[in-house]
């Protein structure tokens, strides 16, 4: 009972936040609404017993990445967004198609979850709390998923090198 109330509260926070991101005319308020959405998502992870993922969601998305967004918005001092014409011809139709595509993917994933099929995954909450949340993620990242994990590392490294090259002072 309490946990489903918690879920509905977080679901409302997350969706209202997400709509507000698009709806606010001022970019700064959009950024704040996006932070609210991320915090709501972290709460949802927490209600799924994924403490590590929830906290990392807050540290990385809600604080580090959004802080960069906030910096950019604050420094370039965007005004309120004017009502303007659509930029691409047929933008609305393309948007609808893209939305539908994402929705169908999500629907397919939803239909294969344990909620619909009744099948449970290999890490139900009891097992996770027995082995330890962080320990399981650490073990899986360095055994079963070591290749994607390393690939991510390379990707991030390339990003850092790119940032250094762009920011380098060009002295003659």
């Amino acid at each position: 009972m309490a946990s489903s109330l918690f879920f509905y509260f977080l679901a409302v926070v997350t969706t209202v936040g997400a709509i507000a991101v698009v709806a606010f005319p001022s970019p700064l308020y959009s950024v704040l609404a996006l932070i609210l959405t991320f915090l709501g998502l972290a709460g949802l992870y927490l209600s799924l017993h994924a403490q590590f993922v929830a906290i990392v969601q807050v540290i990385i998305y809600a604080s580090a990445i959004m802080m960069l967004f906030l910096f950019v918005v604050m420094l370039i001092n965007l005004g309120r967004e004017e009502k303007r014409e659509l930029r691409l011809p047929g933008q609305k139709l393309l948007g609808a198609i893209a939305g539908l595509a994402v929705f169908s993917v999500l629907l397919k994933i939803f239909l294969s979850t344990s909620l619909m099929t009744g099948k449970r995954g290999s890490f139900p909450p009891e097992r996770v709390s027995e082995l330890g949340n962080t320990q399981i993620i650490g073990n899986l990242l360095l055994t079963d998923y070591v290749l994607p994990f390393q690939a991510m590392g390379v990707l991030l490294f390339v990003g850092i090198v790119g940032a250094v090259v762009l920011a380098r002072r060009r002295s003659r």
């Binding site: 906290i55 990392v56 807050v58 580090a64």
Partner: peptide, 25 residues
Amino acid sequence: DINVGILYIFAMAGIGVYGIVLGSW
């Protein structure tokens, strides 16, 4: 006593920065 204790402190510290940035802006 949560099992990700110290990470939680960092998460809270990260959120706290917003108060300073937003107040200043």
